[in-house]
C-alpha cells in the first residue's frame, strides 16, 4: 500500500474509533430525556465525538480518492477491532470468546486484503 493510502487509512481508524468511544462516554453521562442532553452538552464527549466524525468524513473521502471502493470498505472493517479493544480498555466491556473469535477473523481478513 502506498504511504499516503496507509496514512489516510490510519487516520480513518483513529477518527472512527475515537468518535465511537467519545459517543459511548457521552451516553454514560447521567440524566433522563432533555436533562440527559443538557448534561451531555456541557461535557466535552458529545462535541469530541461530533468533531471526530466530521474529521472522519473528510478523511474517508480522501482515502476513497486513493483506493478502490471495495478495498477501502473492507480495510475499514478494522474499525470494529479497534472499537472493541477500546471498549474493553476504557469501559471494561467484556471480551467474550466469541467476540475475540469475531475480531480475530476480521483482523486476519483485513491483513489479507491489505497485502493481497
Amino acid at each position: 500500500m502506498p504511504p499516503i493510502s496507509f496514512a489516510l487509512w490510519l487516520l480513518v481508524l483513529v477518527f472512527d474509533t475515537g468518535g465511537q468511544l467519545a459517543f459511548k462516554a457521552a451516553s454514560g453521562v447521567p440524566g433522563e430525556g432533555l436533562g440527559h442532553w443538557r448534561a451531555m452538552a456541557v461535557r466535552p464527549w458529545l462535541w469530541l465525538g461530533i468533531a471526530a466524525f466530521a474529521c472522519e468524513f473528510v478523511t474517508w473521502l480522501a482515502f476513497l480518492s486513493v483506493v478502490p471502493l471495495a478495498e477501502g470498505v473492507l480495510l475499514s472493517c478494522l474499525n470494529m477491532t479497534a472499537v472493541m479493544l477500546g471498549g474493553r480498555w476504557l469501559f471494561g466491556e467484556r471480551l467474550t470468546a466469541r467476540r475475540l473469535l469475531g475480531v480475530a477473523l476480521i483482523t486476519l481478513g483485513v491483513v489479507l486484503v491489505g497485502i493481497g
Binding site: 473492507l74 470494529m80 475480531v103 477473523l105 476480521i106 486476519l108 481478513g109 483485513v110 491483513v111 486484503v113
Partner: peptide, 19 residues
Amino acid sequence: LQLLGAALIVLGILVLARA
C-alpha cells in the same frame, strides 16, 4: 487473496453478531 480476506471478514461479522 483479497477475496479470501473478504470472506474471513464476513465470517467475522457473523460471529460478532452472534456474540
